[in-house]
Amino acid sequence: MNARTLTLPAAWPVATTLGCLAAALAMTVLLALGSGAVALSPGAVLAALTGTGSDDGAALVVRTLRLPRVMLGVIAGAGLGIAGAAMQGLMRNPLADPGLIGVSSGAALAAAAVVVLGGLLPGAGGALSAVLLPAAAFTGAALTTALVYAASRQDGRSSVTRMLLSGIAINALTLSGIGLLMFMGSDAQVRQFTFWTLGSLAAATWPGVAAAAAATAVALHALLRRAGPLDALALGEAQAGHLGVDTARLNRSCVLLIALSVGATTALTGTLGFIGLIAPHLARRLVGPAHAGLLPASALCGAVLVVLADTAARTWVAPAELPIGVLTALIGAPFFMMLLRSRAARELH
């Protein structure tokens, strides 16, 4: 069966699908909160969350140790999901992903540069790093997004091949930048580079989660207001212009909003590859391509994916912890190959 015929927006209201996805996310969060060295049933997790349980140890584990981390996973997944959806809409290109084309690593490079050059460690340095790291990550993400966007255009049109090739170049550039920083950094700083390149949710703190949540909410809200213009953009840049969309302005604001959501999460989690690619694809199957449904659905799908991946990363080889980026790449890379073979292959000119 053709994959396109699986989209069911006519028969199945988008709001219902979004409700189901939200329920799936809630269950995933319960599962994640109950998993770990101290295994807890969903009932025990709920009791610990609401403070009605008698087990103080469980309450401590769930509320203090696991909840910030799981919430960071939710926010990071949502941020990458909407960034991926917006980027695919903006570039009219199903292969756009903030990780794949170097936006995440641009953010990570900028944040790592602050750490090494500023003599800071993530989590240390207090207020300075709490402001400086996200700001640097945002700037890095914005610069790389703008760079890839500019490089992927030719004669006013966006080309898949140019986007992927310029992504390769930018990834190589950021990797060499990170390599240079490793060379310059202290031993303790170098150990932190796994964090930037393969990601981790281990450093979750409530202030960080709150800041990332605020940035992601702003990005989602602003992108939803642009859902109509993004839909029109699917027809082509000239056609969108004929429908009254100021495409130059739309492009600029989308680049900034993508950078906001990628930068805010990357500063806290390092790079989580492929989430921005997979989440919008799942979401498109469920709610169709219209951005009013696609953006929230991508946020929910991304959140479920990251929380699941993080839960697997911290429980599979316990008490050690796999870098989460290893897992997302393990799922994401074959998924990307599959996309290349199927529909996207027709568009590669």
Partner: peptide
């Protein structure tokens, strides 16, 4: 304006493409 060439691989339902005409 109806341009000479249209994108031929749209994922949108025909109904939704027509509805985009009312966007302005």
């Amino acid at each position: 304006v109806l341009a000479q060439h249209q994108r031929s691989d749209l994922d949108h339902l025909a109904r939704d493409v027509v509805a985009l005409g009312r966007y302005p």
